[in-house]
Nucleic acid binder design. Structure first.
Lengths: 113, 113
DNA sequence: TTGACGCATACCTATATAGGCATATGATTG
DNA sequence: CAATCATATGCCTATATAGGTATGCGTCAA
């Protein structure tokens, strides 16, 4: 099997650096495709493709504005990411003393089996 | 070009659902490979491969314990993910930056799906 | 030393991109 | 209607997996 589709979920969608850049740019406001492409130094088709992925997972939405199609941020879908990573918060501040203690525990437990 | 390598950064590493499951499991304590594989219903080589990716981006550490190799969590690398997603926090609760009512309607519609 | 056990790797296959380029699609204007 | 601008897509290539299977390697017990 290949890697999971980027359209399958938000975690895959934001795995791409350029897509994260797009989201950051859109934080400052809506933008048409060409402007996004220009600001990020990518081709127009390239920008459109990334925007499509972001749209399919619901991180951006588009709105027609004359000849242009304006993309805007919908960061709602990033909340699960934030919360998921947040569940590990207690582990990244502490020293590993605690973990090491746990390790010793496991070691003993196994030896006693 | 193909997609960026999973080993390139944490965002790519956690894009894989099974790897996220591994991290969640390790939150409860260290575990040898075989036990992880059993608990997650994957083959031993499969678990080893995912663990390798996680190790290369620094999300897990391994320690030899006799015949076994025990893997432990090092969630430190998840902090950037949490913080990055957090920079969008102001956008997922309240009204959108400069998006109009039309956008709000779209938001509600999608949330109801 | 010989097995047995636990794990990492090599190898192979199918798949999903990311990108570049050409072109179809839509909308706007003269 | 024709020309033009703004985007989206189709097509093609090279690459990076995710998984499965077989196997090599190191460790421990008898």
């Amino acid at each position: 099997m290949a890697r999971a589709a980027t359209t399958s979920d938000v975690f895959n969608a934001i795995a791409e650096p350029q897509r994260r850049e797009i989201l950051v740019l859109l934080r400052a406001g809506e933008r048409p495709v060409t402007e996004l492409a220009r600001e990020l130094g990518m081709t127009q088709p390239g920008a459109s493709k990334h925007l499509r992925v972001l749209r399919e997972v619901g991180l951006v939405r588009d709105r027609k504005a004359g000849k242009q199609r304006v993309y805007g941020l919908d960061a709602h879908g990033l909340r699960p990411v934030h919360e998921w990573a947040g569940t590990f918060e207690q582990f990244w501040d502490e020293s590993f003393d605690r973990l090491d203690a746990y390790v010793q525990d496991m070691k003993q437990t196994r030896q006693e089996e």
